[in-house]
Design a protein around this nucleic acid. Sequence first.
DNA 1: GTGTTTGCAAACAATTTGCAGAATT
DNA 2: AATTCTGCAAATTGTTTGCAAACAC
Lengths: 136, 136
Amino acid sequence: MKAMKYSGQRESIKEFLAGRTDHPTADTVYMNIRKLYPNISLGTVYRNLSLLVSIGEISRISGMDGAERFDPNTEPHYHFVCRECGCVQDIPLKPLKNLDRMAEEAFDGDIEGHTTLFFGTCMECQKKALDKPIAL
Amino acid sequence: MKAMKYSGQRESIKEFLAGRTDHPTADTVYMNIRKLYPNISLGTVYRNLSLLVSIGEISRISGMDGAERFDPNTEPHYHFVCRECGCVQDIPLKPLKNLDRMAEEAFDGDIEGHTTLFFGTCMECQKKALDKPIAL
DNA sequence: GTGTTTGCAAACAATTTGCAGAATT
DNA sequence: AATTCTGCAAATTGTTTGCAAACAC
C-alpha cells in the first residue's frame, strides 16, 4: 500500500487552500506557494492537489471553461460561475437528494450523485454594470 | 455582420450529430466525417462545432474529464456520466426552474440557469459487473 | 470579385509523466 | 536502507489560430 510521507510543500498547499472560498486554480496555488517555496514546481503542485483530492482532503471543481479549481470544502455543495468575470463562488445549499431520485426514475442505471454549476452575474459585476455608462 | 456561407463539411457534421444521443467528442465527429470528407481537418471540425454551438444549432457538454462533447439536442436537459466507462447519456428531465430560485435565495448575484451532471454506473456496466466473477 | 471556409501546420493551455537526486521514515 | 517526494524538462491531450488556397455567393 501507500504510506504517505510528510511534505512541507503539501502542507503549505493545504494551508493555503484552507479557509479560502475563491476556489483557486492550480496555477494560482503555485504562484502563492512560491512565496514560501521559491523552487517548487508546477508539477509538484498538481501532484499534491491530485493527491489531496484523492484522499478526500480537498475537492476539485470542473465544468467551467479554463482550468480546474480547488476547494478546501469537501462537503458536497453547489457552485456558481460568473459569466462576466469567471469567478467561482459557493452556493450555500445542500445538493438535493431529491434530484438524484428524480433522475433515477427517468433513467436506467444507478445514480450516485450529481454536480451542479449555476451561471449568471455575480454581485460585483452587477454593480460594475450599473456604474458604467451605456456603451455606444 | 457575418453572412454565413454554405459548407458541405458543416452540413455533414450537423447531419452526423442529428439523431445521436451518445454525445460524441470532436475527435469522434472528425473520425466519422472523414468517411465522407477524407481530407477534412480536425481544425475545421472544431471550428464548425463551435460555430454551430454559437448559433444554437447544437449544444456543448463540459464537466466530465477528457474532451468536451456535443449534443444535437438544444433543449436544456440533464446529463449522466458513467464512472466506469465514461459514457455520457441523456436524462430526460427538464432542469428545475425551482433550483435556480433556491440558489438565488441562498446567494447574492443574478442566477440565469444551471448545468447538472449526474454520475453513477450505467446499465451496461452494471450488467458487466454481474457477469464478472469476484476479483481476488 | 468579395468574403467565408478549408486544410495544414504550428501554437497554445492545462495537465501529466520520467527520471535522478533530495527528504522523510 | 527503503520509499516517497521534489524539481526540472519533456511529453500529452484537447483545442485554437495564422495563412494561402478553394469555395460560395
